[in-house]
Design a protein around this nucleic acid. Structure first.
Lengths: 337, 337
DNA sequence: GTGAAAGCGCTAACAC
DNA sequence: GTGTTAGCGCTTTCAC
């Protein structure tokens, strides 16, 4: 592998001149510059970026911890990140942690061991170990999507409470009074916020909150199916007439469970989701859901982190992204018996 | 940030001893070792891995070019890669290229610029530019999934032709004689192989091949919907009675199009997919499809690449992964009129 | 406008 | 068993 010395020799100049030609061409005479460029081609020189990064102390790498890339919502967030990173001259090192704290630690460590400049967490439920921190006990980090806001780090999130309230109100406006909720994992801050929004809407409509209408879930198709099957077993007089699922995968699983026992959506029961993944428009029936600007989440998180790295950010900004209620055919008026 | 010098000073030893304590402890006396470890803690030393990698010339990073992480099949492959990489002491740098040749080049370049040791392509249709190659005109690279086998690089793939033949035969056994195929992008080698398998099965059953039963697609829900709508418009006497989609997303889109015009699956028309993504089991009806060992694809690709990097691989091995025909409810006997 | 030289943090000969 | 030292490839003062 040709190095900068080879180029210098071949061009009959010093290594400093080669470096300058490549980094700050305006400081080199045109004649020399041409000679250097010719030599670069001649010896097939490719700068060793590992050396550059080592020397400069800036890696221009950003580590992203994502619970699972298989989640289609996260996939969109990541696309947005990659775009923004490319524009800003950074590369994304994606860590598919699968919720494994060891994998998380392994990748988070890349920051304290100078392999990456900063970190983005897409699920900030588990506080990172102190040993991963820099000397100041902090880390160049941004938390996005599922966020516990400790005030120390920039945050980009959705007003999940308001979104859940909007969806619940949508169901209430259709006349539903027994509205079930299929939750995400209790450890997820999202779940808490969405539950609050759900309660907000009930309270505002003077509807009772019923603990029995809360079903556990974990954002998977399987969990949705399971909860749907459980709901279907409830006696029709007591059964909820609408189900608000905390994500679209759950909703799709739930609908499938209802169909298998002959319940019609939305005629017999309404189902709503959250996220507006691509499949949601192609379900049967197409899913009423909350759209989040997923790519924008990613773009914003990266931009905030780069601001932090450049020291041009005020203390831990908090960005709230907008949401949109998408009304499709999976929700409808309550059935009149 | 404390460095190895600080540790050495604090422990009253040389930098070499610190390095040895960390790398080959058995070559350092227990007493010195303890003193060094205490100093490491005392000064809060974290080795600068950028320097280590620079020095050793091995980055232990692997770049993976994936067309889109939003494809749930690829997401599973990536999970497998990450697992295998972690076990072997490598990190995955994931490049979500979105088919953009510039992004591809940007990340592929990480190998020739010493930021990564090797490259895995999940879609090897566009040959990489010569400028990205090493001096020998090659690159430590493994091609997986969608592969053009040029014989130069290890390959891990599926016998797509055999799989497509098996699925087509499955449909033929149900009595179907007019079987449509919704293809992937023509540029994808997958599409060519699966088409060949489809033709193989027709030929074996003495059924005519009809160009008009081929529909274009690009592996998305939207494309499936579009093709489904086109098929539905065909006069019933000429209309295919079964549709073989080159992936599950396409099949799900197709089914949705059929439903919207009142066609029943599989009573009026059978639909088959390919990949066995999670949603396939939760469609209505659940999808008959070809399961691929996605995680194994990833694991194998990483293992092969690491073998290449360690120089312990014979010339460009070709690994064919097994497939499985999953029969669910979206395919059935041809309707007798 | 160009060159000489120091040094980023670490590892690995090579001495002792 | 431990220390000294020469770099890895590059950027960046500081001279000239």
């Amino acid at each position: 592998m040709a190095n900068i010395r080879d180029v210098a020799d071949s061009a009959g100049v010093s290594v400093a001149t080669v470096s300058r030609t490549l980094q700050q061409p305006e400081r080199v005479s045109l004649k020399t510059r041409n000679r250097v460029m010719a030599a670069v081609d001649a010896v097939g020189y490719k700068p060793n970026l590992m050396a550059v990064k080592f020397r400069s102390g800036k890696t221009h790498n950003l580590v992203v911890l994502v619970p699972t890339v298989a989640n289609v919502f996260f996939a969109r967030v990541i696309s947005g990140m990659q775009e923004a990173a490319a524009e800003l001259g950074y590369s994304i090192l994606l860590a598919n942690t699968l919720g494994n704290p060891d994998t998380e630690a392994q990748y988070a460590k890349m920051v304290s061991t100078s392999q990456a400049d900063g970190l983005i967490q897409l699920r900030a439920q588990i506080p990172l170990d102190d040993s991963l921190m820099n000397d100041n006990g902090l880390l160049p980090m941004v938390n996005a999507c599922e966020v516990i806001d400790c005030g120390k780090y920039p945050v980009v999130t959705l007003d999940n409470r308001a979104a859940a309230k909007a969806m619940t109100r949508h169901l209430i406006e259709f006349g539903h009074t027994r509205i079930a909720m299929i939750k995400g994992p209790d450890s997820s801050p999202l779940t808490q916020d969405r539950l609050l929004g759900y309660k907000d809407a009930l309270r505002e409509a003077n509807l009772p909150f019923n603990e029995n209408l809360l079903f556990p879930g974990d954002f998977t198709l399987q969990a949705g199916y399971k909860a749907g099957a459980d709901i279907a077993k409830i006696d029709e007089k007591l059964r909820p007439t609408a189900v608000f699922c905390e994500n679209d995968e759950t909703a799709i699983g739930t609908i499938q469970a209802f169909k298998q026992v002959g319940m019609r959506v939305p005629d017999d029961i309404s189902v709503a989701g959250f996220d507006d993944i691509a499949f949601s428009a192609f379900c049967d029936p197409p899913l009423t859901t909350i759209a989040q600007p997923a790519e924008e989440f990613g773009r914003t998180a990266v931009t905030l982190l780069v601001d932090v790295l450049n020291g041009k950010t005020r203390k831990a900004p908090k960005v709230i992204m907008p949401f949109e209620l998408i009304t499709r055919q999976s929700t409808g008026p309550v059935k009149t018996m």
